[in-house]
Structure formats: C-alpha cells, structure tokens
Design a protein around this nucleic acid. Structure first.
Lengths: 130, 130
DNA sequence: ATTTGACCTGGAGCGCGCTCCAGGTACCAG
DNA sequence: CTGGTACCTGGAGCGCGCTCCAGGTCAAAT
C-alpha cells in the first residue's frame, strides 16, 4: 500500500491540487486518508479511481454524471449493471464524438487543401523564413 | 442568390437564433443583409461561412481563434498563408483530440468488459426487463 | 527560534459560450 | 382594426468546471 502526497497525486492524475480538493468536496472522491496534520495521503486505489475520473472527463462526461456513477459505485455490487449501462451509454456518445470530429476534420483538411493551391509552392511551415 | 430567414439559417447551420445574433455582434459573421424592416436575410455565402464556423466549433476551436481567422479572411488574399497555418495547427490539435478520445475509449471499454464478467450472462441492454 | 514550504479550509471569483429577457417593430390573416 | 408571429435591440444572467484567495497549521531545515 503506497501513499502519495497531494502534489504527487496531482502529477500522476493530471488534475490540479485545487481540482483534487474540489472533487473531494463535491463527492467524486471519498475516503481519502489524512496524516496526523490533516494532510491528504492518496492511496493506490485513490489513484486508480482518479485515472478513471480522468478518462471520463477527457471523454466529456459531465461532472453530474460522474457523480451518479460514483454514487452507484459506492452503493455496492448490486449497482454493477446500472454502472455498466451508464458506461455503455457514454461509450456510444464517445464513439459519436470521434465520428463527428473525424468528419469535421475532413472539412478542415479540404479547406487546407484549397489554401495549399492558393498559396502555391508552400514555403515550408516557417512563416518567418521570408 | 438565395436568401434565408434567421429561422432557416438557424436550422441549416445548427446554431440557435441567439447564437447567430451573438456571432454577428462579436464579429464572427459580418455583412449580413437586412430587409426593409431590418430583419436579417442570410445569403448562401453566409451559410457557407456558418458551415465553416460550425466545423471549427465542433472541433473545439475557441471563439477567440475563430475571430482571428475571421479577421484574416476579411483582410484579404495576402493572409491566405497565415490562415492555412492556423487551420493546419488546428488540424493537428483535432488529430490529437481524436487520438486521446480513442485511447480513453479503450479504457472505458476495458471497464465495461469487467462489468460484463461481473454482471454475468448479460440480460440484453434493457434495465427494465427484469 | 525562525524561516520556508507544502498543505489546510471556506468561500469568492472567473472565463467561456451562450441564453434569456423586456420592450419594441413590421407584416400578414381574419 | 385586432391578433398573432417572427423578428429586432441592448444588456443581464447563467451553467459549468474549475481557480484563486486569505488566513492558518504543521514539520523539517538553518
């Protein structure tokens, strides 16, 4: 069982110190241990949980929904099916998101193509070289 | 040369009426024609421009940067290289974004996999059926 | 003994991107 | 003439997700 200081947890999770405190405050992160001076000591489990939160945030899940998931997780094994459904739903949205980005990216690249023709030979990607 | 009412422009662009007015106010959309009563009449060119804005927004470009692009576009042909650079930069970010989403999606799917084993036979995707 | 630095708390503030509202105008239908 | 509807304006307000701040505690280093 390793323990991590707030600074280490921040670095490993990619959340800022303030965000870690905020997440604990709103209930996304519970039961973080404290040392005698009241300072947080994050466990490996905490970090694993943070990695999941990071994943959900990165993929655009709103905090309210992460909270829902968190509460289900805390409620016990019998909520597993619901948690699974929640993640599957989210996964579908992520797939759509990727799809939209890919399609819009084609539009961008088509536009870039127009500029490539317009700006002719293309003088390397260095605007200062001239 | 077709013209479109605000409602039509909204529907075709996917931006709300308020957003269209807002975009015009901040300068993302300029030179929209008006009828005798002062109502906007969007042209095909306006809609083409809106489609580009929609594309940039969907891919996460901040408004400040769209504004920059807009100003370059208005400044004339000689800014083409800079506009191209801007889009290429954005395209790279979009690629990264897609990449991140794809990687995080794997994490989600791995997690779903765990729930699949946990919740056993999987009773079709219908939480009400039981 | 004091300084430094990492951490604590509660609560205010912020940046973004809209979204809503009040109050008004112009046109069309009955 | 009366509604009704679609639009107009300027400006206030909002939801989200942090982020910052003031004022304080503790422990190790000098």
């Amino acid at each position: 069982m390793n323990f991590y200081s707030p600074a280490q947890a921040s670095q490993r999770s990619g959340f800022s110190l303030d965000t870690l405190r905020y997440y604990e405050k709103i209930g996304l992160l519970a039961g973080v241990a404290r040392d005698s001076a009241g300072r947080r000591r994050f466990s490996d489990d905490d970090l694993t949980w943070l990695r999941l939160l990071r994943c959900l945030r990165d993929t655009g899940m709103p905090i309210a929904e992460m909270l829902r998931y968190t509460e289900l997780a805390r409620a016990g094994e019998h909520t597993a099916a619901e948690r699974r459904a929640l993640l599957e739903e989210h996964d579908r949205r992520v797939a759509e998101q990727i799809d939209l980005l890919s399609r819009q990216r084609e539009h961008i690249q088509w536009k870039i193509g127009i500029y490539r023709e317009l700006t002719a030979p293309a003088p390397a990607a260095d605007p200062v070289s001239a």
